[in-house]
Amino acid sequence: MSEQHKGLNLTLKVWRQKGPKEKGHFETYSLQNISPDSSFLEMMDVLNEQLVTEDKEPIAFDHDCREGICGMCSLYINGRAHGPDEDITTCQLHMRKFKDGETITVEPWRSAGFPVIKDLIVDRGAFDKIMAAGGFVSVNTGGIPDANAIPISKDKADEAMDAASCIGCGACVATCKNGSAMLFVSAKVSQLALLPQGKIEAARRAKAMVAKMDEVGFGNCTNTGACEVECPKGISIANIARLNREFLKAKIQD
């Protein structure tokens, strides 16, 4: 699209770690003539292709849809989860955000709740465990009343949709100074608490999900709000207030 841009020469400092128990270290690579129109992960592809050619092991990183929705990609780039751009995932980050000659530091998500598996890949299974503890409405397939049987106000439905747009990437935890997963948990609790279908078991859900969140080792939220800034889907920390409310309301009834 832009012949006027010339290729970027870059230095990459990338975290390499053989396995969960091994000690990791940074390795430095240099890359020539990277198109500013390529995405960050395409730049990583080019680097990996280069490594394969040099008989070195390519860098392992998580990625899948490459359009910002699956939540699989997870890099911490130059001090920011998902890198230096707003409201995007790493796969949507483009190289035009970097300057020629720049040194780019690439690290895995860091948090006790997300142990490193290899290189830049971390284990986010803790999120699934929290979801299995209560992130659902307890209905079985079939035997459901008509979808329009319960009207839901547009405001509530839209607010639920905003919370539901969480992609479970873990940037909130990665960027939180407390390694807290409150934004993730609150998004799911909010979505379901806002809808009549989910309200019925809202109390049980809030307690179960918070208990699991604590159990798997995430930190305590201090309302710093960094999660909201780095969230690729712009999920508001107002959801955290709702989670607090739902949880405390539930506990008072115990």
Binding site: R80, N178, N223, G225, V229
Partner: peptide
């Protein structure tokens, strides 16, 4: 102490450059 534990022992080499976060909250 709990939060430091949850954050884990590894520190980001590139620091934290998230903008728009209240200084006092951190």
């Amino acid at each position: 102490i709990q939060n430091m534990r949850a954050r884990g022992s590894a520190v980001y080499a590139s620091g934290n450059k998230t903008s728009d976060v209240e200084w006092s909250s951190k």
